[in-house]
Design a protein around this nucleic acid. Sequence first.
DNA 1: CATCAATTGCAACACTGTTGCAAAACAAAC
DNA 2: GTTTGTTTTGCAACAGTGTTGCAATTGATG
Lengths: 145, 145
Amino acid sequence: MAEEFNEIIAVLKAQHIRPTKIREEILNLFFDVNHALSHSDIFLKLKNKFDRVTIYRTLEMFGNKGLIHKIVDNSGVTKYASHGHGGCDVNFKHHKTNHIHFKCKQCGNIYCLCSIEVPKVDVPAGYEMQVLNLSAEGICKICSS
Amino acid sequence: MAEEFNEIIAVLKAQHIRPTKIREEILNLFFDVNHALSHSDIFLKLKNKFDRVTIYRTLEMFGNKGLIHKIVDNSGVTKYASHGHGGCDVNFKHHKTNHIHFKCKQCGNIYCLCSIEVPKVDVPAGYEMQVLNLSAEGICKICSS
DNA sequence: CATCAATTGCAACACTGTTGCAAAACAAAC
DNA sequence: GTTTGTTTTGCAACAGTGTTGCAATTGATG
Ligand SMILES: [Mn+2]
Ligand SMILES: [Mn+2]
Ligand SMILES: [Zn+2]
Ligand SMILES: [Zn+2]
């Protein structure tokens, strides 16, 4: 619980989300870490307290309200990262624009690298590119030190 | 069946894969298209002829033998693309090196763009990048014409 | 043909994600 | 504070994907 109870509630209210127990606790989990969390991460950390369906619905809602974003890593695992606080490799309050995701091969964590630019890429004639997603793999700051 | 029966068998034998019925038919499907196929694509095209588990095992084996590679798109769907023949946007016989995948928002197909370079990206200090995966989204050559 | 190894199909299972519905919690009005 | 209507939650059920174990089949080899 690194964050103040009241700050969590304030963030929820700012997005017109009713601050219920499960919502406070899930948002608190995101604010406590600087990497992405999977549904099962969250389910385990809140062991037995809430139904898994409610967690799915909460995550979907947080996504719609812009509090978190969904990340599918290249092994197919879905995770979610907070937009505020610890979700980023630097202390940006928001990193809602397109950015690179870094997956550590050692600890498995996914970090949002919002401080580096997404490069431009030209696609072959005939293709019309709208979005470019980048994901890196390697060893994270913590595991390499 | 764009390809010769004998060519399929030759490719299988070259990788020391016994040319059984299901293997010939699956490899033939890959050689017939220039985009990636999902397990269920394959299962449906070979309707009722083979067990789904055998298809999974065949795909895994083709992957290990270097005939196809696995692609997880950013919505979490797993597909497989052939290394030879039509799997690529240009007629490379092999494109086993790292390359960009393009997903068409209209038809849903995934194409391997092996003719364009994967850019270099610098990650923040402390991170050690080993692989960089790129996936583009937009409108494919066919759907935009 | 007999033998042994590889391949296949089937049953069962785990995991992820979704939907419908009824109970509970909550906010607003009386 | 009680009634009323809306949101939220939990539960049951289900679909899709992928994996494993095992027995039956197929195929290669002598
Ligand atoms: Mn991110
Ligand atoms: Mn490819
Ligand atoms: Zn790590
Ligand atoms: Zn298309």
